[in-house]
Design a protein around this nucleic acid. Structure first.
Lengths: 358, 358
DNA sequence: CTGAAAGCGCTTACAG
DNA sequence: CTGAAAGCGCTTACAG
């Protein structure tokens, strides 16, 4: 640094990289009250009161002064203080199988957005569908004193939910349903039926299902709807052609491989998840079969890239973002003491090249 | 319900659906101390003291009794109380462009895991790379009294980071670098070079780059590395063949379309992001071009589905999960007052069918 | 080693 | 409408 440059440096400037100046301590309510010349309790009432006219919590000008000072100082109430006093955290815990699953990530975006609107912050944790981790993360959330939970990773067997309910923790389910607990899901049975109808209409009789995880209502319901629609049309799907799989590309690949291993390939496959469908396409490709020409493939969810694949994917669209939004709505009502009904959202079949509808 | 069934119902049982019994109030430190027959401060010292032998904070048996009772009651300290007293929340705020981007979701998994190990919980928020939202979410995090922040959405122009730094908020960057702030990134310049070398080795001279967002160091560095390696081999990429794009399939599709619109198609395309590469493949497909045969395509990151696409995608693998883990390590050291160096992790080229390496 | 006290920041009956 | 006080659950000097 030259002498001239040093000259230019304001005296007392911190070395580069260090915080510029000792950051001013965050203002507290006491600071605001003091500056406004009122008691801290008055400041609290003003700042918390509805700014609607209605009942005023302080004199006009006094209230205005308090609000102005708070705004100018950038005062935000310390949630530790508030939480300690009110025993509420305005925190919602969200458990999902995996956020790397774009389906859950999209649902979570809906949750995040709706929560912010409702005045809540959200905590999210991946559980990998592992019951041990589900327990551990739930305990962690509770230790953080969340006001409520949203489970995106419910097991169809609702044992853990029963326990959690018994502990008096309010929660709702999203994406998957279980027991009689409040939930927001896609009408997966219907979705499965739509997939079946589409394939049946195209003359397919030789079908396979990549059914997803045996503990997830999504996969179970989609598979059940699919098989029911087939049966109603007099088409039987052999048991060895209905195989459980993980909800990702690797899972779909393995399951498809398994189907191909047991005999002649089916003419059509329904994968209960888009990524499993993509994995299935990979397995078909490796077996020398062209998806959409040799074997029709239907996925589920209509994730954004489904339309962009080299062979675009026919799939059943589910309102992922909306599910998240509605789940928060449901939770807010439940927290208000309301009894809430399960919500079922509508699926929509989107035909594309993988079933010959280029 | 029959009379017999009603009989079977234990008296005072709650109606089904309601919480089974008034949940016992959470035990506090006072409860534990009372039950152990010690003062609350003693209980605090025992429960917080390192369980290592070293310095004992209480008599052997007394300490054991306190711990036993705490465990039996399932006592967990109320973070509001602790936070109020210690002025630390053990909370880390994480800002990402979008969690639906599997790259960021994977990085976040690393962050979540490493944070838990380090005794922190994490708060994530999507900012959509919108400066307004970045500000708002950062303020929200600070209002929640996070101890520190991790930015996964840094702008190369570090203005907002400068402001945040000036406020004395500790943070590190992940995925993208900016200014001289501590960061954990992939060596993106090198990654771009690897992509170029691969294409050049295959004899390609007619190249295009889908360069990502102009404000993200990832896209900028990958593009710079790619172009530098080309120039060193005497290959010039015309300006109209280097086009910015969003980091998703739609972005890649649009950008590819733009390249195709200006003249004869290039023989090879480097997309700085796998999803953009997939979108590019969609655009090529629609233009009657077969990726990997007519036009080589290279992506970046090696997301799991890259290998499973009907035409598997050649791509530069980046250590996404590891980036998250290392970012937390860096942050912890920074919180301990250490001066931390930027971390650069190694990329790896993975050749596949989209560049004719089936 | 242990207890008693103070206080972190906030809200909410309780008086006036 | 406003102030004074109590207390949410915790940790940490301070004595002893």
């Amino acid at each position: 640094m030259s002498a001239a440059e040093r000259e230019a440096q304001p005296p007392g400037a911190a070395p580069p990289g260090a915080a510029q100046c000792e950051a001013a301590p965050r203002p507290t309510l006491r600071t605001v009250a003091h500056l406004a010349g009122v008691h801290v309790s008055t400041a609290s009432r003003v700042l918390n009161g509805t700014s609607d006219a209605g009942v005023r919590s302080a004199g006009q000008e006094k209230a205005a002064r308090i609000r102005a000072i708070a705004a100018q100082l950038g005062y935000t109430p310390d949630p530790h203080g508030t939480g300690l006093r009110t025993q509420r955290s305005h925190l919602i815990g969200v458990l999902v199988p995996r956020l790397v699953d774009i389906v859950l990530a999209t649902i979570y975006e809906g949750i995040e957005q709706a929560s912010a609107t409702a005045g809540f912050s959200t905590f999210v944790a991946n559980t990998g569908d592992d019951p041990q981790v589900q327990r551990a993360r739930t305990s962690m959330m509770l230790a953080r004193r969340v006001d409520a939970l949203i489970f995106g990773d419910a097991y169809a067997d609702a044992r853990f939910l029963d326990e959690t309910d018994a502990r008096g923790v309010p929660f709702v389910l999203v994406s998957r349903r279980a027991g009689d607990y409040p939930s927001v899901t896609c009408d997966d049975d219907l979705g499965g039926r739509l997939a079946a109808q589409h394939l049946l209409e195209q003359g397919h009789r030789d079908l396979a299902v990549l059914a997803g995880e045996p503990y997830a209502s999504t996969g179970l319901d989609r598979t059940a709807g699919f098989l029911a629609a087939c049966a109603e049309s007099g088409v039987q799907v052999p048991e060895c052609r209905v195989v459980f799989c993980h909800f990702d590309t690797a899972g779909g690949r393995t399951a498809m491989q398994q189907v191909l291993d047991v005999g002649a390939p089916p003419t059509a496959v329904f994968a209960v998840n888009d990524f499993a469908a993509i994995g299935a396409m990979g397995a078909l490709r490796d077996a020398g079969l062209v998806p959409g020409r040799d074997v029709a493939v239907v996925g589920y969810n209509d994730v954004p890239l489904a339309a962009e694949l080299p062979i675009s994917l026919t799939t059943v669209r589910s309102p992922m973002h909306q599910m998240g939004v509605r789940a928060v709505e449901l939770l807010v009502r439940r927290l208000a003491g309301e009894a809430v009904p399960p919500v079922l959202l509508e699926p929509l079949l989107v035909p594309r090249a993988s079933t010959g509808c280029a």
